[in-house]
Write a protein that binds this DNA or RNA. Structure first.
Length: 491
RNA sequence: CGGGGUAUAGCGCAGUUGGUAGCGUGCUACGUUCGGGACGUAGAGGUCGGGCGUUCGAGUCGCCCUACCCCGACCA
């Protein structure tokens, strides 16, 4: 492994790739556009999953699992939906291989053609609503509040580790309700869950809002999102929650009898976050020395590096290190004692910095004599020598402080890179030269939105919740506007 | 799918007018080291992406594939 990662100032994309690879989060696989998530990266995803799963269950949801394959005809039942996904679907056409009659290995058996092609799910609305049809007859069967953890495939032109891969891991919630109000409430409830998770666990500030019609999910009436600002000034959509109205209920003929004995279509929501959150995590906190992880999502909170010269010292110091580890583990702190004799301290220091371990303890003979330990924190790269007895309180407090500090740094960064613009020149200058979030007036038309996208590659990230209503004129068209919306270049 | 690249040791690369392949790093062993990615010595590791052609001779020249990367368009 080489010693350097590309600085952000030199090449941000390269820096991102270096972190993903050198922190051993993921790597490209033998399959085009698909990644291998390595153990350390997967451990972080598992922590993300565990917490979200808990939050879903606390809000009344249950996990279920639906098939990977979707009959082609299902996908086309909702017009906007098929329009949105048709161009990026992997299609299964055959179910058997055979030996090549010409002796060139193995070929698809032309006799094993499927009667109806199967689509590898790009999202599961259709297969789930075809199933819900069988589950729902009466208002007593509602609501249905299901989530599934799954992989999906979208055949993207260009991929980037975690941010956009052909296959990715995610969770998708799919709910069915008796009333519109209830489905809308669910849609909002879940975007709030995502926002809370982003803030409290990822230490990542997000803006919640509505997507414009252009940016809406294919098949949704309304799409809510959380948008985060990355260090290079680009926005990342980190999660979405859709109010689907009765679109899928109508497409799959899912009706129920209400209390008055009337037959009605069911109301729906769907919501999801993906392994893209890993990319968000990297680009929110990391620096030129490597990955920086908020303690709440760190697979290892504290690493202890013993420093020794002789075998006797090794014995003594490792014994002490294990004792410290034991004391900390009682407090639910994950501790790794790196007692490998095969790597040297300096190497280990660099390694754990690369991997973003929040706290590192160095323990040498000096410390054993003095009853101290050296504590280094990853977020600030500062070191302190502290008394051994007060370690528990100190570390507990430090982990909380790092979590808080990371959020503060991220929100300070976002504030410094959020602008309010009233002229096109200023708007253009900021978005082309600095990047960041820009609040500006928009006339509300899809044409203007598209024209701005065309000129600057800038999109409306969202119309924030509780947006201040104020009279103004559109940044591009000069037509009257009632509110500012959030613009940015996006991933 | 348009434009531009790249393909040589696990990884990153060099290879001159065509003459039989090298550097860094990593790996293995031993010794000295060990509080910020140590050093020395000795080793192992390559059908040069694939195919066809030119030539006495091809990593190098020509043609045809294939894969991947970057910039666009598309997108969580």
């Amino acid at each position: 492994m080489s010693k350097e990662i590309t600085p952000r100032s030199e090449n941000y994309s390269q820096w991102y790739n270096d972190i993903v690879r050198k922190a051993e989060l993921a790597e490209n696989s033998a399959v085009r556009g698909c990644m291998v998530i390595k153990p350390y990266g997967y451990a972080i995803w598992e922590k993300i999953q565990a917490q979200l799963d808990k939050m879903f269950k606390e809000t009344g949801h249950e996990n279920a699992y639906f098939p990977l394959f979707i009959p082609k005809s299902f996908l086309s039942k909702e017009a906007a939906h098929v329009e949105g996904f048709a161009k990026e679907c992997a299609v299964v056409t055959h179910y058997r291989l055979k030996n090549d009659p010409d002796g060139n290995g193995i070929v698809v058996d032309p006799d094993a053609k499927l009667e109806e092609e199967l689509i590898v799910r790009p999202t599961s609305e259709t297969i789930i609503w075809s199933t819900y049809k069988n589950w729902i007859q009466s208002y007593r069967d509602l609501p249905i509040l299901c989530n599934q953890w799954a992989n999906v495939v979208r055949w993207e032109m260009r991929t980037r580790l975690f941010l956009r891969t052909t296959e990715f891991l995610w969770q998708e919630g799919h709910t069915a309700h008796a009333t519109e109000a209830e489905a809308v409430e669910e849609t909002h409830k879940m975007i709030d869950v995502y926002a809370e998770f982003a803030k409290e666990w990822m230490a990542m500030p997000v803006i919640q809002g509505h997507k414009t019609e252009n940016e809406r999910f294919a098949g949704a009436i309304d799409t809510l999102c959380i948008e985060a600002l990355m260090q290079d000034g680009k926005a990342l959509q980190a999660g979405t929650s859709h109010f689907l109205g009765q679109n899928f209920a109508k497409a799959f003929d899912v009706k129920f009898t209400d209390k008055d004995g009337k037959l009605n279509y069911v109301w729906a929501s769907s919501w999801g976050v993906s392994t893209r959150l890993m990319g968000a995590l990297i680009m929110t906190h990391s620096d030129d020395k490597g990955f920086v992880l908020p303690p709440k999502l760190a697979p290892i909170h504290v690493v202890i590096v013993p420093i020794y010269k002789t075998p006797e010292q090794y014995e003594t110091i490792c014994a002490k290190a294990n004792e410290i580890a034991k004391r900390l583990r009682v407090l639910n702190i994950t501790v790794k004692v790196d007692d490998r004799d095969t790597q040297k301290p300096g190497w280990k220091f660099a390694e754990y910095e690369m991997k973003g371990v929040p706290v590192r303890l160095a323990l040498g003979s000096r410390d054993i004599e003095n009853g101290t330990v050296e504590v280094a924190r990853r977020d600030t790269l500062t070191k302190e020598t502290i008394e051994m007895e007060s370690l528990e309180a100190y570390i507990t407090n430090l982990l909380e402080e790092i979590q808080t500090n990371l959020y503060k740094k991220a929100i300070d960064f976002r504030n410094e890179n959020t602008y309010t613009c009233d002229t096109w020149n200023e708007f253009q200058d900021i978005l082309e030269n600095k990047g960041g979030f820009v609040y500006a007036h928009w006339d509300g038309t899809a044409e203007t939105e598209a024209a701005i996208k065309d000129k600057l590659k800038v999109t409306i990230r969202c119309i924030p919740f509780n947006n201040k209503q104020e009279d103004g004129v559109c940044i591009l068209s000069g037509k009257p506007s009632k509110q500012r919306v959030l613009f940015a270049k996006a991933y």
